[in-house]
Design a binder for these strands. Sequence first.
DNA 1: CCGTATCCGTCTGGATACTG
DNA 2: CAGTATCCAGACGGATACGG
Lengths: 120, 120
Amino acid sequence: MISPTCPGAIEPILTILDGKWSLLLLRELFNGTKRFGELRRALHPISPKTLTDRLRMLEENGIVTRTLYPGVPLHVEYELTERGTHLQPIFAAMWDWVQAYGSCPRQETDAQGQAAEAAM
Amino acid sequence: MISPTCPGAIEPILTILDGKWSLLLLRELFNGTKRFGELRRALHPISPKTLTDRLRMLEENGIVTRTLYPGVPLHVEYELTERGTHLQPIFAAMWDWVQAYGSCPRQETDAQGQAAEAAM
DNA sequence: CCGTATCCGTCTGGATACTG
DNA sequence: CAGTATCCAGACGGATACGG
């Protein structure tokens, strides 16, 4: 947990994006309903404990729903809520930024930096 | 550090947004050039060590610049680079989301959820 | 298959005191 | 003023084994 002060500014986002995996987990869920095992493979090498922790947190914050289909073997699906799907513009903005400015600054020669300048 | 794999997807964002304070720190810097002490007060109760750590990380990633004005007492200013200012749409998207869906889900009655539905 | 239980290492961030 | 140095606590996440 990062900040318990919920109302006001971008603090709620801090809760949702907190932790090493939340961003990557949400990215997976934007591609549709996923099962626990699918998420686990997609986020490899995440541990089951951590995956459960993150999923529970997102549930508590109303970002994902957990649906259990009884039977053996067990079948559980995770899906974004409406509130969750509306996070999409944030990810779109992140993606746009990465396209334009995201390459590692420490690795690039300054010649590459100029390309972006020239494009303006 | 979260992910050393830099090229590709949103992973570079993970580096920049990593940690408890990065988001809040960037928010301050969107309001213009800030001095170390200003940031420290704005992010109170952040410790000087942590503030320095975050600032250094943002420098290394080409998000902020550090400018030293010699003299006594010391005067140092931190400012977003161009790369840094272009993160703004991400924050705008976060802000939009918080306005529409950000109130604590655990605290709200479901009557409040309906208001958002009606607005669509 | 989908987790939980347990244990444990690491790493982040805080407290405090001190320096240029 | 703007940090650095040092030490430390606690959170976070991993590994593994087991249960429904």
